[in-house]
Amino acid sequence: MAGSGTAHLRDASAAILRAENLVVEFPLGSTGLKVHAVSDVSLDLLPGETLGLVGESGSGKSTTARALMQMPTPNSGSVFLEQKNLTELSGSDLRELRPQMQMIFQDPISSLNPRRKVTDIVAEPLKIWKRGTTVEQYELVDRVLESVGIDPEGARSRRPSEFSGGQCQRICIARSLMLEPKLLICDEPVSALDVSVQAQILNLLQDLKEQHGLTMLFIAHDLAVVKNVSDRVAVMYLGKLCEVGDPDALYSTPAHPYTKTLLDSIPHPDPDAPKGDFAGLSGEIPSPVAPPSGCRFRTRCPNAQELCEQVEPVMTAVGEDHYVACHFPLLGTPVTL
């Protein structure tokens, strides 16, 4: 995948968030080497849309999310929130925009300060921005807590450790909604939860999205979860995007060999499910310190050719709202789901 390019981006004036050619690199100690965590990633979100971002651990999903939030600022590339380039804003101008984009994290427990009462945690955004009187603040806290399914009465005297993981994630969601953001970035919000609780949170996010007209970037490594919540899906591998498209098309006719592998790896809750004829993914994800030349997936790709080593593929349309960065896209090979 290794793909760069911006063919999959849509009309810039319509997008609520548009990231172009994001690059994030971390210095590796004092060795002079760099971790290429995100390399030339572009994506955009239209109002009310949910973009799902999938990929293996270490593929750069969280780093992308944090680069969008300018935490830290990407090494290069630009992020536009409604046409305002965040990467060029001063610290205080950026701070003014923070309430418009919020984030929730994978580990709900470490996302909440263990020493504070739950209602205080949820009221914190209002206190930071000095919105309303204390009475008004706590009224709103109660309303929002109720809307995420937490009893505000019980939350007043309790600390996060007295709540389960699923409830903590609800509290995190409540906090992120206090300032009425336009954009919500969810970084693996259900990965740490049990399946039974996962469904509760996914439904809750869906309801809140409709109520508040939220635009969401939803990160996960579970393809079924991503498909369930997304209007558009982007697949990431080793710091680059492989494939972007409408979930139904992308899942039924994956064009990128990596997407197909991911789909074939999913265990089905069905003892008779036909096992894919694809031989699984061999080998290991290469080190992001020295990523392969050309297509970054070529070291594990069953279809790799010489061209893949020399030339990096760029995003190209293979269907309506279906883009792939591969020299030899798989076409017309529907997977048996």
């Binding site: 003014e96 984030m103 996302s111 921005w129 995190c172």
Partner: peptide, 9 residues
């Protein structure tokens, strides 16, 4: 939670 606070401004 510290990151969350920073993202809240």
């Amino acid at each position: 939670f510290v990151l969350a606070a920073r993202l809240l401004g």
